[in-house]
Design a protein around this nucleic acid. Sequence first.
DNA 1: GAGGTTTCAAACGAAATTGCATGAGATCTA
DNA 2: TAGATCTCATGCAATTTCGTTTGAAACCTC
Lengths: 302, 302
Amino acid sequence: MCVMHLCMNWDAISFDWNQARAFLATAEEGSLSGAARVLHTTQPTVGRQVSALEAALGVALFERVGRGLALTPSGAEVLEEVRAMGDTAARVSLVAAGRNDTVAGKVAISVSDMMAIHVMPDILGALAKAEPELEIELIVTNDISDLLRREADIAVRHMAPTEPELIGRELTGSKARFYASEGFVQRHGNPRTMADAQDMPFIGFGPPEDMARELGLRGINLPAGSGRLYSKTIFAAWQMVCAGLGIGIMADDIAARSSGIVPVLAEEEVMPVDLWIVTHRELRHSRRIRLVWETLLERLGG
Amino acid sequence: MCVMHLCMNWDAISFDWNQARAFLATAEEGSLSGAARVLHTTQPTVGRQVSALEAALGVALFERVGRGLALTPSGAEVLEEVRAMGDTAARVSLVAAGRNDTVAGKVAISVSDMMAIHVMPDILGALAKAEPELEIELIVTNDISDLLRREADIAVRHMAPTEPELIGRELTGSKARFYASEGFVQRHGNPRTMADAQDMPFIGFGPPEDMARELGLRGINLPAGSGRLYSKTIFAAWQMVCAGLGIGIMADDIAARSSGIVPVLAEEEVMPVDLWIVTHRELRHSRRIRLVWETLLERLGG
DNA sequence: GAGGTTTCAAACGAAATTGCATGAGATCTA
DNA sequence: TAGATCTCATGCAATTTCGTTTGAAACCTC
């Protein structure tokens, strides 16, 4: 609109911005109580703030209808704008975090469950010891965390980021191959090719379709009907492999930590494991973020 | 960016929005004291709010340098985003005002000085009597007020609005013609055509170039060198006409209120006076605005 | 229909924020 | 260089806001 701000209209923004936030949270969450929860405050406070905003703007935003509130048409219209205000507020928070030059504070790292269990403890332990003021939240998920919405500050992913707002760095990932338990091999034999394993069960790390597509890209075709056992929680799936329920794919270094596990399908392709650390472009220069970033880079092999 | 708000990231907007506003005002005004003035609060309060924001974001926004503050590079970057937040806040205020269904409150009307003196008093008097809770600010300016920035809520202009956000309604403006004082006519005679007035002084309502261009569009060519006396304050210019200093253009109904004034240049074109009332599209349906709008329409002749 | 679980609203005491007054430092003018 | 006028920082009293608690009404489940 207008970039020049020679004279700002201060009257137009003189309403209480926190009350606007309370209204936003209430409308989004659907209730005063819900808003109070997400804002880490209490229901009476949110209620008073919304009422005060209504009085200040001279507009009835909600209609008190039994339990819960209902947006009035005016409220819906105002909400649109307040929502935009919330979006810009999130951007304020983002660039501020990117400029944050204190080491103290929180960094949220999103990793897969296997990494959380097998490789992160050492790294986080070293980090916590080296930087006592650093607070780290480990978000364990096998879905790709939404860095754009800042569910996490840094994510360890298995692929390069596609969003232009994100920047990533590839790590020297290990190799992955097929494994099974010693018990499984004793019972079924150790297949050397996929043809040998036609009738053997495979443990998947996600829906069979996804697994088949993923491996198909690497020239490996799983037998039809395999992978009826799967879990998106890789740790759980791997436990099934260890229990001798079937064949699974695992990174060599992690497989090496499990006892009683042997490689199978020796003549099939050994697959490289893509590993990326990813963060938001704006956060890249935050001292705190960079500290964690460098440590991850070093310990995971940059 | 993302229109879907299935789950909002509430942590990202959990900083104090009023503190952000304090920072915005401070940065824009250049000092804590200045910010305190525009925000109708005190300097210690603004100072504490800005400091608290710095602490919350972990970013040094200002560098305390003797008298006054200087934005840090980080502060400048954050300011950009907070400025965007301020813009959206202004929009909140705008649509809220448009939905405001209370009669009580302020309406700012922007008019030319002549209108302010000659026609508004009656209208505003009637309005104030009919609606005791209505508060009206009369902004007197011959520049077109920036309705987009809400310097005024309603403007009476001499041309149709060009901005798409504004809506206007044409009024039945009066006719305008050339006038001079009786004393002037006694001394110089009453010219009937522009040729007769070649050597007579003209009083302008703005820079001679503007006047010449404006009248040229209507087929009237002022003598070269006329209009060396002018004032953008039309009232002042008209006083010069009344004092017999020269010939001036005036709307008939307003000229009729001045004694000792007679029409001159009778054979020249009589010019229609364009008259529009203009407001912001969003404000159109505010009860308060509509009330004033309808009154202006009625009394000024819709 | 009773019990449990929500919701919002009201009252009261506590805590945080605000405003005023004051002081110290810097800039500008004479 | 001295005075005036700005600026921001600090201490203290007063107001406002907040959180806790309680109550009443609506919804869901059994």
